[in-house]
Simulated assay, not measured.
Amino acid sequence: MTIALITGASSGIGTVYARRLAARGHDLVLVARATARLNTLADELRSAHGVTVEVITADLTDAAQTEPVAQRLRADPPIDILVNNAGAGLSGGLANADPVALESLLRLNSLVPTLLTAAVLPGMLQRGHGSIVNIASVLALLPEYSHGIYAATKSYVLTMSQSLHAEVGSRGIYVQAVLPAATRTEIYDRMGGDISKVPDVMEVDDLVDAALIGFDRKELVTIPPVPDAADWTAFEKARMVLAMGFSNAKPAQRYRG
C-alpha cells in the first residue's frame, strides 16, 4: 500500500484528494488545522475504503507546527505521494497590506511546499520513485488579474515544480503542478469575498478528477479548464523561442545607444 500525505486536507481540494486517493487504495496522512474535521474525514475514509489514515493537526503558517509534518515525511513508513495543497489568499493590494499577513501568506503558499518537498525528496530519490503534486493557480500565468502577492506565490509554486522536474524527473520522481481557475472552495469566504459573484466557477470534485487524469497521464502541468492541450504546448514553445535570445553576450540592438 502506498501512502499519500495531503496538506490542507480538512476542506475543499484537499478533502476531495483524500477521498479520491483513498478510493484508489492509498493509505493517507491528513494535515490541517481543523482537528475535528480531519478526524471526521479520517473515520469516513477508514470505514468506506479500509485504508489506514493518520491525522496531523498543524497550522503550517507556524514553523514549529510545520516541523512535525516534515519529520513525518522523512520517517517510515515512507510517503509515496505528497500533495502540497494547503494555501490561502489575501484580499487587497500590496500598498496597504499588513506585513504580518504578507509573511504568513508567503510562508503558507511558497515556503511550506518548498520545505515539505525538501523533506520528502531524499527518501523518494533513495527508493527511486515518488510523486509530488503542487497546487498552484492559473493566476501564476495571469498576475495582472490579481492584486497583491497571491499570484506571485502561485507563480513560485509553478516554477518550483518545473525546476524540480528538470532536476529529478529522470530519477523516478514525478512532479505535477495543478493550475485551477476559479473553484468553489472556502478560500473566498476566508478572504471576505462572495463566490456567487465569480463567473464560471468549477466544482471541486470536477477539478480534482481532472487533475488526477493529468496525474495518471504524468503531465507536468495540468490546467483543468483549458480545452485544448495544444494551447499549453504553444505557450511553452513560445517560451523556448524567447529563451533562445538569453545567451547573447551583448545587449540587443534596440538597447544600444
Rank of each mutant, 00 (worst) to 15 (best):
D59Y: 03
D59C: 07
D59M: 12
L60Y: 00
L60W: 06
T61A: 11
D62H: 08
D62C: 01
A63T: 15
A63Y: 06
Q65W: 06
E67Q: 14
V69D: 10
V69Y: 06
A70R: 13
A70C: 11
A70T: 07
A70W: 03
R72L: 04
L73T: 09
L73K: 09
L73W: 04
A75Q: 05
A75W: 08
A75F: 07
D76Y: 04
D76E: 15
P77G: 08
I79N: 06
I79E: 05
D80G: 00
D80F: 06
I81K: 10
I81M: 06
L82E: 00
L82M: 09
V83Y: 08
V83H: 01
N85I: 06
A86E: 09
A86K: 06
A86W: 09
G87V: 01
G87P: 06
A88V: 00
A88M: 03
G89R: 05
G89I: 03
L90S: 04
L90Q: 13
S91V: 12
G92M: 13
G92Y: 07
G93S: 13
G93W: 06
G93A: 10
G93M: 06
L94G: 12
L94Q: 13
A95D: 08
A95V: 12
N96D: 15
N96M: 15
D98I: 12
P99S: 14
L102Y: 11
E103C: 07
L106M: 15
L106C: 10
L106E: 12
R107V: 08
